[in-house]
Amino acid sequence: MTNLELYASVRADLDWDLASLRGDCARMAPHWAVPDRITALPISPSRIHGVTVPEGSARLLDAMSEYGD
């Protein structure tokens, strides 16, 4: 078991709720970098090479239903 007091700089409060989570997110939001605009450029299929899928993985994906079970 991890000793939370050893690694935490503040007291570890294990009784989290939605209000404390929203407060943490609001305090961290100014620190998150957000690009002004995301532009995804199309890539020519001729530039895509070297991608291999193991046969077992391909069979597994082929056997899955399209929208899950």
Rank of each mutant, 00 (worst) to 15 (best):
V34S: 08
R37D: 02
N3M: 11
S46R: 11
V34Y: 01
G68M: 03
R37N: 01
A63G: 12
S20C: 06
T2H: 07
T52R: 07
A63I: 07
T39H: 10
W32I: 14
S9E: 06
R22F: 04
P54R: 00
A33Y: 07
P35M: 03
S46H: 07
M64T: 01
P54M: 02
C25V: 09
S20I: 01
A19I: 06
L60M: 14
H49T: 06
L4M: 07
P45V: 01
S65L: 12
V34W: 09
L41T: 11
A12K: 04
V51P: 05
C25P: 00
A19F: 04
L6Y: 11
A19R: 12
D15S: 15
W16D: 04
S46I: 05
L41G: 05
I48E: 00
M64L: 15
R11Y: 08
T52H: 08
S65E: 08
V51H: 06
R22S: 09
R47F: 06
A29L: 15
A12D: 02
G56Y: 00
S46K: 13
L4E: 03
V34H: 09
D36L: 08
H49Q: 06
A12Y: 06
I43V: 14
D24Y: 09
I38G: 07
D15H: 11
R11P: 00
M64P: 00
G68R: 08
E5H: 10
D24A: 15
V10Y: 04
E5S: 10
V51W: 05
M1N: 10
E5A: 12
A40P: 08
R47W: 04
W16R: 06
R11T: 10
S20Y: 00
L6A: 15
I43W: 05
P54E: 01
D69C: 06
T52Y: 02
G56W: 00
E55S: 14
I48V: 14
S46V: 08
A29V: 04
D62K: 13
D36P: 03
A40I: 14
M1A: 13
S46E: 12
L21N: 09
N3W: 03
E5W: 01
R59N: 10
M28G: 04
H49F: 07
D17P: 02
R59W: 08
I48G: 00
I38D: 08
R22I: 03
P45D: 02
